[in-house]
Each structure stands twice: as structure tokens, then as C-alpha cells.
Design a protein around this nucleic acid. Structure first.
Length: 408
DNA sequence: TGACATGATTGAGG
DNA sequence: CCTCAATCATGTCA
């Protein structure tokens, strides 16, 4: 049985059976609510009620015979007690019929169940859980209304039948119907309360999850920063690159997206603050670049398949990841490795050039202390070509195209 | 404890 | 759906 149907079933069981007893009035369940227990009792009651309902259409003699049969029925006392309670209620003031309901363990059970449905990952699909609760709520509400109508009909038929043997005023019938309706509406109120509580709890858990922020590991941040600063001219990782970064950092793709979104904004807002960081990562990548240049030169000369330089140990191997790699990989099936090296060279030469320029003390126009300048930041503070994120462009760049990272 | 850093969310815009 | 920009809420550090 799936979770939802289990929940629905329990909901039906709890509220229709459980709550009805609580108020002191044993409501016989209407047709279609036999539940999972499947005992014959409810079926019996249904049969009895059915018989009662058909009685009025029969002749008096026949009805008397039926009545006799019903009187002898083993379920008669139970049904009789229902009528007694209704009758008892009519003697009470209709005003103030809404007596206080004590805390209900069934209600708590319901809440716990709803909670259990949402504990696996509240932040994942809050809306889905909300929809689920809404569906259950509407289903149950519909059931209550149906049950109320059915039960009212049953009672009215009973009274109509009784009116043949004793005087029953229309007002009395009206009162009884009122009692039934109030009883059902109090149950409905409990359903609404339960739903409200479930939604509140779901929401608070969702917010809790949001508040529980954890900083990424140092290694993860380094990996992300290395990618960011080596793709500074176009720091928009493709979907594939994001996935790879996510894998390497042990975070989700959306976290990678968040990180890049925050990073771009904050970098752009305060370039000066990030210069030191940029220099650090540029220098770091430069080491890799130097190796790659050497390897590539050798590779080009000998034209022999060389293993691309893996970069500094333990660090994110930029050439082997990110959109650059993806692009080159798609160049021509078998020989992608060579192309990849070429791309690596381009990228890393780019980085190397940065470092050389910086350490040489060239002022690139951003001010005296400016060592690392984001050349591709346009006048508006946006990245040039950044209007077309690489998630779109990168994987579809044509063969031989060089990522804009290398345009510096 | 306050300031700053940082990950996540939200709403607008394309 | 993605990005930007603003913002929130928590983590970190002096």
C-alpha cells in the first residue's frame, strides 16, 4: 500500500470512527466506510439501515413483520442506543451544544502521521507535501459531508417510520437534524485543526531546514574558487560542469548554482576585495599552466599521445573539468585527448599571462593595487558574453571554438 | 558580542 | 528555467 492511501485510510478510520465515539454519540458509519478491519458489524448496521429505509415503501403488515425481524436482530441494541442518545440530546438546550472537546489522542496520532510523511526531507518538496495534505483534507471533507447527509437521511427515515406509532413533531425532527449536523461539523472542525497543525509543522520544519546552513568544506570552496577564477571572464559553468563540480565538492548542483550566483554578484560588487583571492588562485593555476604548456609543446612536437598534466596534487584539475573539457571532448571522438591538451594550454596560458603581468607590476588600469583585473566585465558591471550563460553555449559551441575564458 | 562571511531564498526580468 | 540583486539567517572570528 502506498503512503498516501495508507494515510487516507488512517485518516478515515481515525476521524470517522474515533472522533465519533469521543463525543459520546456512536454514529453508525454510512455505506462505503467499512474500513480495513472488515468486521461484519458495520455491514450489519448498513443492512439494518437499508432495511429501515425501504420499510416506508412497504405495506404496514409487511413493515410490521420487518420490524419484528429487526427487533430480534442482534444489532438492534446498538442501533437503539444511537436513537436513545439522539433523543437524549433533544432534551438539552440547543444553545451551547458545542461542548469543549478534551485533547484527543487520535488527533495527535493524525498529526504524528502527517509529520512522519514530511520528515524525510522537508526542504526538498515542501510544495509536494502541501499538495498532499490539501488532497487528503479535501477528500476527508467530502467524506464527512457525504456521511453527514447519509446519516441525516437515515435518521429522518427512522423518525418518519416512528411517527406512525407515536407523535413526532416536525420541530423534533428539525432539532435532531441540527444535532447531527453540529456533531459532524465539530468533527469537520477537528479535521481542519489537524490540517492546520500539519501545515504549520510542515512549514516550520521547512524553515528550520533553511536555517540550518552549513559552510562548505574548505576543499569544496577551493575547488569552486579555482573554477571561478580560471573562468573569470565567463564564470558560468555549464550544466555538465556544475554536475562535475557538485560531485567533486560533495554538494548538490543547485548548491553549485547558488555558489556561483553569490560569487558572481559579490565579486562584481567588490572586485577589490577579491583581488587577493584572485591572485592566489591565478598563481595556483599558473603552476598547472606551466606544466601544461611544457607538456603540450612536447606533445605537439612528438605528436605522441601524452597524458595531460594532472596539475597540482590534490587540487581541482581545471583542464580536466568544466565546460572546456566538455567542449573539447566532443570534438572528434577518439582524438579528444589531444584537443583537450590544446584547450588546456589556451586556458592555462591565459592564467599564466595574468600572473606574469601581475607579478611584473603592470598596471592594467584598475588602479595602483590592481593586479588581477576582470577584463571581461563590461561597463555595466556585467560579464561580457555572460548574457548567454555557458549552460547554453558551452556544450553547443562549435568544434574548435575556444571558450571565452581564453580571450584574455 | 558585534562585524563580517556565506549559503539559501525570493522576486523580477529575459 | 536561469540569472541577478536584495535579503535573510546562520556560521565564524576577533
Amino acid at each position: 500500500m502506498d503512503e498516501q492511501s495508507r494515510m487516507l485510510q488512517t485518516l478515515a478510520g481515525v476521524n470517522l470512527a474515533g472522533h465519533s465515539v469521543q463525543g459520546g454519540m456512536a454514529l453508525p458509519p454510512p455505506h462505503g466506510h467499512e474500513g480495513a478491519d472488515g468486521d461484519g458489524r458495520k455491514q450489519d448496521i448498513g443492512d439494518i439501515l437499508h432495511q429501515i429505509m425501504t420499510i416506508t415503501d412497504q405495506s404496514l403488515d409487511e413493515a410490521q413483520a420487518k420490524k419484528h425481524a429487526l427487533n430480534c436482530h442482534r444489532m438492534k441494541p446498538a442501533l437503539f442506543s444511537v436513537l436513545c442518545e439522539i433523543k437524549e440530546k433533544t432534551g438539552l438546550s440547543i444553545r451551547g451544544a458545542q461542548e469543549e472537546d478534551p485533547p484527543d489522542p487520535q488527533l495527535m496520532r493524525l498529526d504524528n502521521m502527517l509529520l512522519a510523511e514530511g520528515v524525510s526531507g522537508p526542504e526538498k518538496d515542501y510544495r509536494a507535501k502541501l499538495t498532499q495534505i490539501r488532497q487528503i483534507y479535501h477528500t476527508e471533507l467530502e467524506k464527512y459531508e457525504q456521511a453527514c447527509n447519509e446519516f441525516t437521511t437515515h435518521v429522518m427515515n427512522l423518525l418518519r417510520e416512528q411517527s406512525r406509532t407515536r407523535p413526532i413533531s416536525p420541530k423534533e425532527i428539525e432539532r435532531m437534524v441540527g444535532i447531527i449536523h453540529r456533531k459532524f461539523s465539530s468533527i469537520q472542525m477537528q479535521l481542519k485543526q489537524s490540517t492546520c497543525e500539519a501545515v504549520m509543522i510542515l512549514r516550520s520544519r521547512f524553515l528550520d531546514a533553511r536555517r540550518k546552513r552549513r559552510n562548505f568544506s574548505k576543499q569544496a570552496t577551493e575547488i569552486l574558487n579555482e573554477y571561478f577564477y580560471s573562468h573569470l571572464s565567463n564564470p558560468y559553468p555549464s550544466e555538465e560542469a556544475k554536475e562535475e563540480l557538485a560531485k567533486k565538492c560533495s554538494i548538490t548542483v543547485s548548491q553549485v548554482s547558488n555558489w556561483f550566483g553569490n560569487k558572481r554578484i559579490r565579486y562584481k560588487k567588490n572586485i577589490g576585495k577579491f583581488q587577493e583571492e584572485a591572485n592566489l588562485y591565478a598563481a595556483k593555476t599558473a603552476v598547472t599552466a606551466a606544466h601544461a604548456v611544457a607538456a603540450a609543446v612536447q606533445n605537439n612536437q612528438t605528436n605522441s599521445p601524452t597524458t595531460p598534466n594532472s596539475g597540482s596534487s590534490g587540487s581541482f584539475n581545471l583542464p580536466n573539468s568544466g565546460d572546456m573539457f566538455m567542449n573539447m571532448q566532443s570534438l572528434n571522438g577518439d582524438s579528444y585527448q589531444g584537443s583537450q591538451v590544446g584547450a588546456n594550454v589556451q586556458s592555462q596560458v591565459d592564467t599564466l599571462r595574468h600572473v606574469i603581468n601581475q607579478t611584473g607590476g603592470y598596471n592594467d588600469g584598475l588602479g595602483g593595487n590592481s593586479l588581477y583585473s576582470p577584463h571581461n566585465l563590461n561597463a555595466n558591471g556585467g560579464w561580457q558574453d555572460a548574457t548567454t550563460p555557458s549552460s547554453v553555449t558551452s556544450p553547443t559551441e562549435g568544434p574548435g571554438s575556444v571558450h571565452s575564458d581564453t580571450s584574455n
